[in-house]
Design a protein around this nucleic acid. Structure first.
Lengths: 130, 130
DNA sequence: TATAAACTAGTAATAGTTATTGATTTATGA
DNA sequence: TCATAAATCAATAACTATTACTAGTTTATA
């Protein structure tokens, strides 16, 4: 049975207030302002729990630590190869690629994850000016 | 300057002989039959080096350790949620999704990575018979 | 408001990977 | 072929990210 906890509520609020996609460490540092004694383990445990509950998303980009997204609605992410920023992309759902994958495959395709890589606007500008 | 090493050659051969996508640990255990003194660090170092050289692929599925693919040609992978197997998919390139992502995005999209998830053939069969 | 279960902070432990070091192997060229 | 320098190695330590453990605290319920 799930019980309320202020820490969990604060973790979720922290994520929802931000449009970047912080790491567990960043969440931890942010929460320490309100709860100086909060432990990193509590942050990880609640991030996992919130992910299981479908209230947030865990983002494994394949490089560096996992990141967390307070927006649980399905959407896609961009990862900047230069600065590491993770940004939301405004784009349609790619559901049709599941059918392409299923076509010659004998198992059952249920879902997909997609990451786009390149340079973010900031890093593109930075190159031109230097 | 790159110099030849039997260990590196064996690591690459080991990967190319297999159609699964072994972890560094599996490569290490496999190589120990031929080189009982090989070290896990050597395996990791050469797997990274071969990836940089574009001779193999490193696959970060987002769950569990990285896997390695002796086939450096671009292709997509399926991950079984039940048994963890990583399989190659026969499907066309999805280059067009880069354009969809680029459409409302101010940075530069250069590439993408896609993983498909679900149940592999073995696991689907296993469920029906039990 | 007493109780039990869920939760916490603090800490230890683990998994996966990278870095360090002194010895060995490989390529070059006298 | 032999000497040299650079790349590589095995062994091991260190590191990063994450999970597990434990005794005490907070939350829901009756």
């Amino acid at each position: 049975m799930l019980k309320y906890s202020r820490q969990r509520e604060s973790i979720k609020n922290f994520l929802m207030e931000r449009c970047d996609h912080p790491t567990a460490e960043t969440v931890y540092q942010g929460l320490r302002e309100k709860y100086p004694n909060i432990s990193l383990g509590t942050v990880y445990r609640n991030l996992s729990l919130l992910t299981e509950l479908g209230e947030i998303q865990t983002i494994s980009t394949g490089a560096g630590p996992d990141r967390f997204d307070g927006n649980a609605m399905p959407h896609y992410h961009f990862v900047c190869k230069q600065c590491g920023a993770v940004l939301d992309l405004k784009m349609q759902s790619l559901e049709h690629i599941n059918l392409l994958a299923q076509h010659e495959f004998s198992g059952e395709i249920e879902s997909h994850s997609v990451f786009f890589y390149g340079k973010c606007e900031e890093c593109v500008k930075g190159e031109k000016s230097s």
